[in-house]
């Protein structure tokens, strides 16, 4: 790939960084983290080996950066999806819908984040858990306030949605994720269903 000389240096550098991040996502999704070699990454990203080491400490550092990018983009998509102000049902359906669309549109980063990260390295497993934690917080913020729902409910809901999606991704069917929307909405809404009638009594500890 040739870069025209008039492009600013920062733009070129950022573009190369992005290509390396995309390359490791594609490669780990295809063949797993273990089997992915630096040589494969630089070839796929069309960058010099030195460029990779100028930007990252090595394969794991690049992998962790790619995971961080993927989780930030996935979360941004979900946050954008659920606009504040609408009803709980609408927000949950919109947020889940945005998540499923993201997975269908970006199967490789999704697989890297939701499947490979768990077993690749101890640091990537921690990053995965932290990213699950952020989705738990996101759901908790969006959930009805002042209700006496159990403390662990959002962890179980996020875990359940994650489990369904992990199985789908492992089967190589990320593209059909949006079809799961009705069942997942029903699942996530079920504990909140009668909250309005119960009224607020403070979340149980």
């Amino acid at each position: 790939m040739t870069i025209r000389p008039e492009l600013p240096r920062e733009f070129v550098a950022e573009h190369k960084r992005r290509r390396m991040i995309d390359a490791i996502a594609d490669l780990t999704a295809e063949q797993g983290y273990e089997a992915t070699k630096i040589a494969d990454i630089v070839r796929q990203a069309a960058v010099a080996r030195k460029t990779l080491y100028d930007n990252f400490d090595g394969k794991e550092d690049l992998f962790l950066s790619a995971l961080d990018t993927a989780q930030a983009e996935m979360r941004a998509a979900v946050e954008e999806g659920c606009e504040p102000g609408s009803s709980l049902e609408d927000r949950i359906a919109a947020g889940l819908g945005a998540l499923l669309e993201f997975i269908a549109a970006h199967p490789a980063p999704s697989r890297m984040l939701m499947v490979e990260a768990i077993s690749a390295t101890p640091s990537s497993a921690r990053l995965y858990e932290a990213s699950v934690g952020r989705f738990v917080d996101l759901l908790r913020v969006g959930a009805p306030t002042g209700t006496d729902l159990p403390e662990t409910i959002e962890e179980s809901l996020v875990g359940g949605v994650g489990w369904i999606l992990q199985q789908l991704i492992r089967r190589g069917e990320a593209g059909s994720a949006p079809q799961l929307l009705p069942e997942l909405v029903q699942f996530v809404l079920s504990p909140y269903a009668s909250v309005a009638e119960r009224g607020g009594a403070g979340r149980r500890k």
């Binding site: 662990t152 875990g159 359940g160 489990w163 069942e183 029903q186 699942f187």
Partner: peptide, 22 residues
């Protein structure tokens, strides 16, 4: 009850317990 509901319930409890154990 849809099959996926049961999977989500069991997978969700397992994931939550895993987080608490961690």
């Amino acid at each position: 009850v849809p099959e996926a509901m049961g999977e989500a319930v069991v997978g969700g409890v397992a994931a939550m317990l895993g987080r608490r154990i961690l």
